[in-house]
Structures are given as structure tokens and as C-alpha cells.
């Protein structure tokens, strides 16, 4: 293990803002993309089912 304590880990040697912003943003982008795609799929399925019922 590289870290003496959890606070040292979160502090990232003084670069906490830059490091955690980078990882947070990346995670956020990925989660958002998946959620957006699930919504898009639900909407597409709803429309096709509407069409099929006619």
C-alpha cells in the first residue's frame, strides 16, 4: 500500500483537486452516457410499440 492513512490518500500529495476532478469527471461522463443510452432505448422501444399497435 502506498498510503499511510485515508486522509493522505484523499489529499493526493496536495494535488487532490486535480486528481479527483479528473477521475470524477471521467466517471460522470461514463455514467451519464449509459443512462442517456438507456433512456434513448426506452423511448425508441416505446415508439416502435406504438407503431406496431396501429
Amino acid at each position: 500500500m502506498q498510503w499511510e492513512s485515508w486522509s493522505a490518500f484523499f489529499n493526493m500529495g496536495g494535488y487532490a483537486f486535480y486528481v479527483w476532478f479528473s477521475f470524477g469527471l471521467t466517471a460522470l461522463c461514463m455514467v451519464w452516457e449509459v443512462i442517456a443510452l438507456r433512456k434513448r432505448r426506452a423511448e425508441a422501444l416505446r415508439l416502435t410499440q406504438l407503431l406496431a399497435q396501429d
Partner: peptide
């Protein structure tokens, strides 16, 4: 995931999508 959405959107009126919807 996205290509499946695109297929559904683009081929909405085709038989296979309608078939899929009926099953759905």
C-alpha cells in the same frame, strides 16, 4: 447499446422491428 437504438429508430417501419415490438 447505441447501435441497437439507432437500428430501432432507423428501421422503425421495417417488418423485423414491428415483429420485435409485437414480441415486446
Amino acid at each position: 447499446m447505441r447501435v441497437r437504438c439507432i437500428m430501432l429508430e432507423r428501421e422503425r417501419t421495417s417488418d423485423w422491428v414491428k415483429e420485435l415490438s409485437v414480441q415486446g
